[in-house]
Amino acid sequence: MLSRVRSLPHFHRDLRVVALVAPRRAVTPRTLGVLRSLTARIKGADPDIHVLEPGVAVRFFRPRTSAGDAPRPALLWIHGGGYVFGRAAQDDALCQRFADRLGVVVASVDYRLSPEYSYPIPVEDCLHAYRWLVNREEVDPSRIVIGGASAGGGLAAALAFAIRDSDLTEPVFQLLVYPMLDDRTVSGPEHMRMWDGECNRFGWASFLGDADASIAAPGRRTDLAGLPPAWIGVGSNDLFACEDREYADRLVEAGVPCEFHSVSGAFHGFDSVSSRSGVAREFFDEQCAAVSKILKA
């Protein structure tokens, strides 16, 4: 076992054991039903649940050490799953950690999945949740962060465009965790795990349907000016490593402050499948530091 672990020098030392068993391809049309069945069994925590419309709900978390009733900052969090599987309950523990660490309320969105509901429906579901959050009495609408992981990060990026082009109060920050941004990405680092080009083709084809990819895929958008500041984090062994870096560079070129954080030797979803590892804790700390900095500015 030790020799096999040592034979994986391209992975972060904290992730080499997990890399031995982590699949390169987590979802295909054949496995989608199984993955959905497994995620449907996730019970999660016991937060307040608000149904916004059939198929769309928000799981609401408060800091467990909160003091006072004054409106506080908020994080709208969007779960991942390649646009085709997953549910908000899978991130309950993470959302409570954000709430406790940052002293914010967190609204985690259950949006409708593709291919049954293709673009723009998932983005509209997240926009509905954002409107709901802005109008909560316990929320300071001038200090709302939007964020998500993987497909959730892609939806958060798409949501930023939708809010910018509306009359809604704009978020102060985008927290984009290895976001899924560009349907054109079909190849990446040699040592990928969890999500590869075939997964990406399937996820994007399901999400896009008949939509215009130049509008639906944030990585294809050319009008990045006026978006909220952003933090983008991704592993060097992630399929999205290049597209995320390019998007960060383009945000900066458009005058949007963006901090890019690369985790050497990390693969897609590493902080989920190895949440107790040192590298995962450091990755979470980086996210919290970025959000804290913007909320205290």
Rank of each mutant, 00 (worst) to 15 (best):
58 V>H: 03
2 L>A: 14
77 W>S: 09
102 L>Q: 04
188 G>Q: 09
269 G>Q: 03
270 F>H: 06
273 V>C: 14
10 H>L: 09
70 A>Y: 15
63 P>V: 02
219 G>N: 07
184 R>P: 11
61 F>D: 08
131 R>T: 07
74 A>T: 08
55 G>Q: 05
23 P>R: 02
72 R>Y: 10
278 G>C: 08
121 I>F: 14
69 D>G: 15
140 D>V: 03
280 A>C: 05
229 P>Q: 08
87 R>S: 10
174 Q>L: 01
177 V>F: 08
98 F>R: 05
268 H>P: 05
199 C>I: 10
193 R>K: 12
92 D>H: 07
225 A>I: 09
24 R>G: 13
121 I>E: 13
88 A>S: 09
28 T>P: 00
8 L>I: 02
132 W>V: 02
181 L>K: 06
75 L>N: 11
213 A>G: 13
61 F>C: 08
254 A>K: 00
128 H>C: 11
98 F>W: 11
54 P>G: 12
117 Y>M: 01
134 V>P: 08
72 R>Q: 13
82 G>T: 06
79 H>S: 06
280 A>Y: 04
167 D>L: 13
68 G>Y: 08
233 G>N: 05
295 L>Q: 04
229 P>A: 08
200 N>S: 13
16 R>P: 01
168 L>C: 05
86 G>K: 04
259 E>A: 10
244 D>H: 02
190 E>M: 14
182 D>C: 04
15 L>C: 01
152 G>W: 02
155 L>A: 05
220 R>A: 12
215 I>N: 15
243 E>G: 06
197 G>Y: 10
13 R>Q: 08
256 V>Q: 04
285 D>M: 07
173 F>N: 07
115 P>V: 02
47 P>M: 06
238 D>T: 13
76 L>D: 07
24 R>K: 09
146 I>K: 03
81 G>H: 03
213 A>C: 12
215 I>H: 15
276 R>G: 15
215 I>S: 14
102 L>I: 03
135 N>V: 12
140 D>K: 07
15 L>M: 01
48 D>Q: 15
42 I>M: 09
162 A>D: 10
178 Y>T: 13
6 R>N: 14
161 F>A: 10
161 F>H: 06
58 V>E: 09
91 D>C: 05
231 W>P: 06
143 R>Y: 05
2 L>D: 15
259 E>S: 11
